[in-house]
Design a protein around this nucleic acid. Structure first.
Lengths: 241, 241, 241, 241
DNA sequence: AATGAATGAGACTTCATTCAT
DNA sequence: CATGAATGAAGTCTCATTCAT
C-alpha cells in the first residue's frame, strides 16, 4: 500500500480491474478497506467508525470485511502502525541533510506538521489510539521514543545537549513528544480538521528547547545562573533587568 | 462533596443514613453517583462505563440515576469540571508560598502528580474527555491555559522569563501542559493505574524549562550563543569537547 | 366538582385555602387532579399524559395522586363519565323548549358543538376513550344511545319519524352519533384544537336527517318514489331532471 | 404482497424456502413483518404492539426488523396505507356493476363490512391510526372523502341526489363515513373481534340515506313537506297519525 | 472469495407505582 | 395526608459478527 489513506487513483485502478491478478485484487481490497477506515477514523474518530461505514466507503460488502480482518479491532490495531511507518519515512527523508541536532529537531518538528497536513486523518488515528488501539499506540510511542533516544544520544555525545546523564534521554524524548502533541492540538486543528501550524509557533518551540523558559533566580548564584544572566542581557528582550 | 471520587467511609455514612435529612440524602446519592462514575471511568474509561455499572456501584436503582442527571452524557460532562476544580484548588494551596516563578512551576508540577496519586481516576477522566466530553475538555484546557498565561505574564514582567513577546505566553503554557501529560502517561502510570512520578523526572523537567535542551550551534555566533557557550563551560556536565 | 376542566378561579380558592375544612381541601385536590388530567388529555391525549404532568399541573406531589386514585387508569376511567355528565346536563338545558323532534335534534346537535367549544378537551377525552378507557367509553356510548332511543321513540310515536319498527331506533341513534363525530373531526377541529362548527354544516346535517341523500330510482316505481319525485320538483335544486 | 395480514400458508412457503431467491426471501420477510404487525395491532392495538411481538410472530430476530423498517413508527405509518389500498381495491371490484348511485352506495357499504370480516384487524388499524399514525389516518380519510366527493358529484349531476350545492358533497361524504364507523363499532364487533354486520342494519342504513329520519313539521308548509307527508302515507309503516 | 441479510446481546431511557419522612 | 425521591420493569434501537447463497 502506497499510503493508508492516500486518495489513490481509484478510478484508474478500477478500470484496470479486469487485468488484476487474484492477488492484486485482494491487495486492492485490503487497501481500500484500510484507506476507508483511515479516512473515517480521521473524520469521526474510532468510536464512531462502524464496519458498515468502512465497507460502504470501500465499496465492498460488509461480509467481505471479515475476509481481510479478524475483527474491527484487528483493523484498528493495524491502522496506526501502517500510517506511523509512513510518517517516519516521510520525516526521515526530510532530516537527511540536517547538520546540527537543533536543526534536525526543527526539521523533524516541521515535517511532522507537514505530514499531518497531507494526512489530516493522522491526528485522530494517532491520538485516539491510546484508547482504541492501546497496543499499537504503545508501540508507536515506543518507536518514536527510541528514535528520539538514539538521536539525542548522538547529539549528546557531540556536546550539543544540556544533559548530564544518559537516563535523561528518554524522558527528554517524551517531553518533546508531549509538546508536539499539544501544539498540534491547540494550533494545528481547526473545526476538527488538521491545518498548518503557524510559523511563529515553530519559533516559540525553538526557543523553549534551546533556552528553556525560566531564568534561574539570582539566589542560587551559580555559574550557570551568571551565564544565563549574561545571555539574557545579550539576547535582549527581557523586560526589566 | 469533599471529593468527587473520594472513597469516603461509605459504611459509616450508610449507618448514619437514618439521621440524614432529605437534602443530605439527596446530596449523598448524587455524590455516590459522581464518585461511582469517576471510579469507573478511571478504571474502564468513558467508553466502557455504563449507567448500570455506575448505579450498581452507587447502590441505587438504575432509574435513580435519571433523578440526578439528564443522561449519561450529562454526567460525563460534569465529571471533569468537578474534579478539575478540585485539582486546581489542591494545586493552588500548594503554590501559595512559592517565591520565584520557577519554584512555583515546580511546586505546581509536583502537586499535579500528587493529586493524581490521590485521585488515580483523574488521568482517564481528564485525557479521555477530549473524546467523550469535548466541551468539558476544552473548558478545562482553556482554564489551565489561562492560568498559565496569567502566571507567566507576571513572571515575565518580573524578568523571570525568556520570552520576548506576550503572544508567546499561551503557546508556552500549552507546551508545559503537553510535557506534563506525556511525563504522566509514561512515568506516572503502571498497569493502567496512577503511581507516583519518580523524583529524577522532576529534575529533568526542571532542566528543560530552565536550560532548554539543545545548545545553539557556533555558526550562528550570536550573543546568546556565546552566553550559552560560556554557560555550558561553567556549568560543566557536557560530555564532549 | 363544578366542571372537570373548568378553569375555575383557582387563585381565589387558594387564597381561601386556610379556611377550607379538611373535606373541602380534599375535594379541592381531587378536583385539581381531575381538571389537570382533563386539560392534559385534551391537549396531549391519554397516551402522552403522565402522572407527573397531572400532579405538576395540579400543584401537588406525585405521591398525592395515589391518595385520590388507585392508579392512572382509575382516573382515566372517571374522566369521561364526569365530563360526559356535564355535557348531558348542558344539552338537556338547551333542548328544554324544543317543540318538534327535528328541532330538538338540531338544538342538541348545536349544543354539542357549543359544549365542545367551551370544553375543547372533551374531544380527545371522549373519542380516545375507546382506546384508553374502554369501559367508560362503552358506558358513555350506551348512555347517549339510550337517550337517543328514548327521544326517538317518543318522536316516532308522534309520527315524526320515518321508521317502521322499534328495533330501528338504536341503530338510528348510532348513525346520528357517527355523523356528529365525523363532522366534529373534520369541521370543528383546527390544529388539534376545538373550534366552532361552521353554520352551513348544520344545514347540511339537517337535510340529511330529514330528506336523506339519495333519491330512489324510477325503476322501483313505488308510491314513495313518486312522492319523492314530486318533492324533488317542488324543492328544486336538482341539477337535471 | 397479496394481503398485508393474510394468514397465508406460511408452512407451505417455509418448506419452499430453499428455493426462494434472495429477493423473494426478502419480500417474504417484509410481508411476514407487515402481516405480523397487522395481526398484532388488530388484536392488541397499536399501543400494545411491541417490536418483539412482531418479530416473534414473524419468526425473525428483533434486529431483522430494522433491516426492513426505520423504526416501529415507520412500520405503523405503512400499515394503514397498505391495507387501505387493498380495501379500496376490494370495494372497487364489487361496485363495478352498480347502476344507480344508491345501489352503488349499498354495495360499497356491504363490501366494506365484508372486507372487515376478511380482515378483522382492519378495524383497529384504521380507527386507532388517528392516534398512532395520524398522517396515514389523515391521508386515508382524505382519500375516502375524495372518492365520495367524486362519486357523489356524478350522482348529483344525474339528479340522483338531494343536494343543492357542490359544497355539500364533502360534508355528506364525511357523514356517511361517520355512520359506517359507528355501525361498525356497534354492530360489527363482538368481544373485540370483527363479525358480520346484521342484514337489517343495512336496511336501516338505506332508509336513512334515502328518506332521512325526521319528517318535516307541518308548520313549514312547504311543498317538500307536503310531498313527504304524502310519501309517509303511501309508504305506510308510520305507526299512527 | 464476495455478498448482504440475519442475528441477538446489550445499552439507554421512561414512567407508573411505592415508600420513608 | 402530603411529599418527592427511589424503584425497576420494560421497550426501542444499534451494530459487530455470522452465515447461507
Amino acid at each position: 500500500m502506497d499510503s493508508v489513506a492516500g486518495s489513490a487513483p481509484r478510478e484508474l485502478r478500477v478500470r484496470r480491474a479486469r487485468r488484476m491478478t487474484r492477488e492484486e485484487k485482494s491487495q486492492f481490497i485490503r487497501d481500500s478497506l484500510m484507506s476507508a477506515a483511515a479516512m473515517t477514523v480521521g473524520e469521526q474518530g474510532y468510536a464512531n467508525t462502524m464496519v458498515s461505514t468502512i465497507t460502504a466507503r470501500a465499496k465492498v460488502a460488509q461480509g467481505t470485511f471479515y475476509n481481510y480482518f479478524e475483527s474491527k479491532q484487528a483493523l484498528f490495531d493495524q491502522l496506526l502502525p501502517e500510517l506511523g511507518k509512513e510518517m517516519l519515512q516521510f520525516i526521515r527523508e526530510r532530516i537527511a541533510n540536517a547538520s546540527t541536532a537543533l536543526e534536525r529537531e526543527e526539521i523533524s518538528f516541521k515535517a511532522f506538521f507537514d505530514f499531518l497536513k497531507k494526512h489530516p486523518e493522522f491526528y485522530r488515528i494517532l491520538y485516539e489510539a491510546e484508547l482504541f488501539a492501546p497496543t499499537a499506540f504503545r508501540d508507536h510511542m515506543d518507536t518514536i521514543a527510541r528514535g528520539y533516544v538514539r538521536f539525542l544520544r548522538t547529539a549528546w555525545e557531540r556536546g550539543e545537549l544540556n544533559i548530564k546523564d544518559e537516563s535523561e534521554l528518554e524522558p527528554t524524548g517524551y517531553m518533546l513528544m508531549g509538546i508536539r502533541h499539544y501544539l498540534c492540538m491547540q494550533y494545528a486543528r481547526k473545526d476538527g480538521k488538521s491545518v498548518a501550524l503557524p510559523e511563529h509557533i515553530v519559533e516559540i518551540y525553538k526557543r523553549l528547547i534551546t533556552d528553556g523558559i525560566f531564568t534561574v533566580p539570582e539566589t542560587s548564584a551559580s555559574g550557570a545562573a551568571k551565564a544565563r544572566q549574561s545571555r539574557a542581557e545579550g539576547g535582549g528582550g527581557g523586560k526589566g533587568v
